[in-house]
Amino acid sequence: MKKAGGIIALIAGIFGIFAAGATLFIGGIGGAFQADGASTVVGLGWGGVGFSFIVIVLGAVAIASKSKVPGVLLIISSIAGAILGGTLVAVFMVLSLVGGILAVVGAKKVLPPAPPPATISID
């Protein structure tokens, strides 16, 4: 499940980049027509780009990681991206959140190495 969570997060991050690009496009058109709040939409677009890149990186790390840390960071960045990335990006950050949860649930507990077996010598 850990690899599936990382792959889902990668896909969500890639689609999040496209959604952030659409948000930037809409904000740019609004800025060209001097609409109120256009700069806010552009700011949300850049936030979406940033958090989508973070999700892509953490998704790739979660695939190969043996700990739960990338999954937890993926959940945190998904929530922050949903809040600071705009509505279009938030849709894909929900998918990334599911990937982060799968990465946390699928990570196995890392056990310390076992001590070497005891040898008995008979003299």
Rank of each mutant, 00 (worst) to 15 (best):
M1N: 09
K2I: 04
G5K: 08
G5M: 13
G5F: 07
G6C: 13
I8N: 14
A9R: 08
A9Y: 11
L10D: 06
L10S: 12
I11V: 15
G13F: 01
G13M: 03
I14S: 04
I14H: 00
F15Q: 10
G16E: 05
G16D: 02
I17M: 15
I17Q: 13
I17F: 11
I17T: 08
A19P: 05
A20Q: 04
A20L: 05
A20P: 05
A22N: 11
T23S: 12
L24D: 03
L24K: 02
F25E: 14
F25G: 13
I26M: 15
I26G: 05
I26S: 13
I29N: 15
G31M: 09
F33N: 12
F33H: 07
Q34G: 00
D36V: 11
D36M: 09
G37I: 04
G37K: 07
S39C: 00
G43D: 06
G43L: 06
W46E: 01
W46S: 03
G47T: 02
G47K: 04
G47F: 03
G48N: 04
G50N: 11
F51S: 13
F51Y: 14
F51C: 10
S52N: 05
F53M: 15
I54W: 01
V57A: 15
V57Q: 01
A60H: 00
V61R: 13
A62L: 12
A62V: 12
I63H: 02
I63D: 00
A64G: 14
A64W: 07
S65T: 15
P70A: 06
L73I: 13
L74E: 09
I76M: 11
I76L: 15
S78C: 06
S78H: 05
A80F: 15
A80I: 13
G81A: 15
A82Y: 06
A82C: 14
A82T: 08
I83M: 09
L84A: 15
G86R: 06
T87F: 14
V89M: 07
V91M: 11
F92T: 04
G100A: 09
G100Q: 00
I101Q: 06
L102F: 03
L102D: 04
V104Y: 02
V104R: 04
K108C: 01
V110M: 08
V110K: 03
V110Q: 11
L111T: 06
L111Q: 14
L111N: 10
P112C: 07
P112Y: 03
P113I: 01
A114D: 11
A114P: 06
P115C: 04
P115E: 09
P116Y: 05
T119S: 13
I120G: 00
S121I: 11
I122Q: 08
I122P: 01
